[in-house]
C-alpha cells in the first residue's frame, strides 16, 4: 500500500491549551477517510494543523506526507506539495478577483511540479468547465474572492479551487455545513470526480449526510482530542442513530 499520510502520536495546543492528545492515523493513496465528532472535539484544529496553520503548536508526535516530514514545511510549501484544505469559513479578499487568485495559485503549484504556466486560453477553458460542473455563475469568477458570496457559493468556490488545483491530499473542513441537499450533491459530484487511486481525501464533518454522497472507506470518531473509534461506513450510520455521547464518555474515562 502507498501511504500518503502517516500521523503518529500527534499532540497539539493553541494558546497554551491542549486540543489534540495523541492522534495516530495513516491514509493511503486512493482512500477516503471521514473524521466525525461533536463540537469542540478538535476536528478543525486537526484539519488546520495538517495545512500548517502557525497558531497551532505541535507539542509532540510526527506527520509524514509522501515520506517527507510535513512539520518542517511552511503552509505554502505544503500546498505546493499537493495538500489542499477546503476551508470551513473561506475568507473574503476585497479587490482581488477570484479568477486571479485561482490562476496565481495554480501557477505556484505548477511551478513546484516543474510544469509550465498554463496559457490563458487553456486556463480559461478549464475554469469554465469546472465552474459549470459546480453549477456556479461565471460572474463569480470576476468578483472579489468570496466577497458578497452566499454561504453556499463560498463552499462551491472552495471545491472549484480543489478541482483546479488537483491536490493529492484534499482536506474538507465541514464543507457540508450550511449546504442544502442540491448543493451538497453538486459538491459531492465535484469531489467524486477527482477520486482515483493516486489521491486521498479527509472529510471532516458533523453529519452522516455528506457520507451518503461521498462514500468513505474509513470513519473515525474524534472526541476530546482523541480518535476514540474507527470503522467502516457503517460506523457513521451508528453515530447518526446513537449520537456521540457514548463515545465521549469513553474518551473522558480514558483521559489520564
Amino acid at each position: 500500500m502507498n501511504t500518503l499520510l502517516r500521523i503518529k502520536n500527534l499532540h497539539v495546543s493553541v494558546e497554551g491549551k491542549a486540543i489534540l492528545h495523541g492522534i495516530d492515523l495513516s491514509i493511503n493513496a486512493g482512500e477516503v477517510h471521514a473524521i466525525m465528532g461533536p463540537n469542540g472535539s478538535g476536528k478543525s484544529t486537526f484539519a488546520q494543523v495538517l495545512a500548517g496553520r502557525e497558531q497551532f503548536e505541535v507539542l509532540q508526535g510526527s506527520i509524514h506526507y509522501a515520506g517527507e516530514n510535513l512539520l518542517t514545511l511552511s503552509p505554502e510549501k505544503r500546498a505546493r506539495a499537493g495538500i489542499f484544505l477546503a476551508f470551513q469559513y473561506p475568507v473574503e479578499i476585497p479587490g482581488v478577483s477570484n479568477v486571479y487568485l485561482l490562476k496565481t495559485a495554480l501557477n505556484a503549484i505548477r511551478k513546484q511540479r516543474g510544469e509550465a504556466e498554463l496559457d490563458a486560453m487553456d486556463f480559461l477553458e478549464r475554469v469554465k468547465q469546472h465552474t459549470a460542473m459546480m453549477q456556479m455563475d461565471e460572474e463569480l469568477l470576476y468578483r472579489s474572492v468570496n466577497a458578497g458570496f452566499s454561504g453556499g457559493e463560498k463552499k462551491r468556490n472552495e471545491i472549484l479551487q480543489l478541482l483546479m488545483l488537483e491536490p493529492r491530499l484534499a482536506i474538507l473542513d465541514e464543507t457540508d455545513s450550511g449546504l442544502d441537499i442540491d448543493a451538497l450533491q453538486v459538491v459531492a459530484n465535484g469531489v467524486n470526480s477527482l477520486r482515483d487511486d493516486t489521491r486521498a481525501f479527509l472529510l471532516v464533518t458533523h453529519y452522516q449526510r455528506l457520507l451518503d454522497y461521498i462514500r468513505p472507506d474509513f470513519v473515525h470518531v474524534l472526541a476530546a482530542g482523541r480518535l476514540v473509534k474507527s470503522g467502516g461506513p457503517e460506523l457513521a450510520l451508528e453515530l447518526e442513530q446513537r449520537g456521540y455521547s457514548w463515545l465521549k464518555e469513553a474518551a473522558v474515562a480514558a483521559t489520564p
Binding site: 503552509p75 489542499f84 484544505l85 476551508f87 488545483l165
Partner: peptide, 11 residues
C-alpha cells in the same frame, strides 16, 4: 486568516 488562506493556495 487571509494570509493563511492565500498560503494554503500556494502563495
Amino acid at each position: 486568516e487571509q494570509l493563511f488562506y492565500c498560503q494554503q493556495r500556494g502563495l
